[in-house]
Amino acid sequence: MKLRVERVHITLGHRPVLRDVTLEATPGAVVGLIGPNGSGKSTVLRTIYRSLRPQRGVVRVDGDDVWSLSARSAARRTAAVLQDAGGGPTGVCVSDVVALGRTPHHGLLGRDGADDHQAVDEALDLCGIRHMAERDVTSLSGGERQRVLLARALAQQPRLLVLDELTNHLDIRARFELLDLIRSTGITTLAVLHDLDLAARLCDQLVALHAGEVVAAGAVLDVLTPGLLRDVFGVAATASRHADGVVRITYGAQPLSLDQVPQPTVG
């Protein structure tokens, strides 16, 4: 499954939030979308899972404009794990939430069949949460809840995953486990990540957004240059590949003072 976002432009009110954003994820690739707060990362995701229609530009999933597909058929291709998805009312158990992933596979009259149960069971197993299938979702820890939401997305049997800050608020081990899990699925993934070390560890490619524009895209070390870390994130830092093959970022002792960081032009 290939994702291609082509020259997408979005204005909310009079403020442009995305300016000619173009990015691509080749089949099976894990692409990280990085950028400071307010740079438009979540907005890019919204155009992909069909929540926000771009004023200009096209989002293609497997070659088809997502807005030319029905909401249901688009959702059979693309699953999302978002930040609004936590909580919910009481009386909802883990397997109920995971089963919601089957929603786009049914119309009004559809009943759950064997393939639905199989998809839910596989997702529960893959995420290691089958033992808590009957637990109430309000009783879960943060890490368990994110696993449940990922299982829901996998039960959707998507060919593209979009993830918005999946690992926020999780302890370091839970982060690594979750990211390994995503890699192991082999599904094309676009993930918004705040933690640059995690992004460097997880992703094949990175796309950096700044003030609604793509300022760099490509292999991890090509994107995480000292210049970009300074201009976009406002920190003195260097990224390098260590002997074990992992890219790590070394931050300077102090954040840069504001006059050292070019400010984005607001327009």
Partner: peptide, 13 residues
């Protein structure tokens, strides 16, 4: 029940 944005991503208008 899972929120408007997540429901949209599940293919619901």
């Amino acid at each position: 029940l899972v929120g408007d944005e997540s429901a949209t991503s599940l293919g619901i208008d």
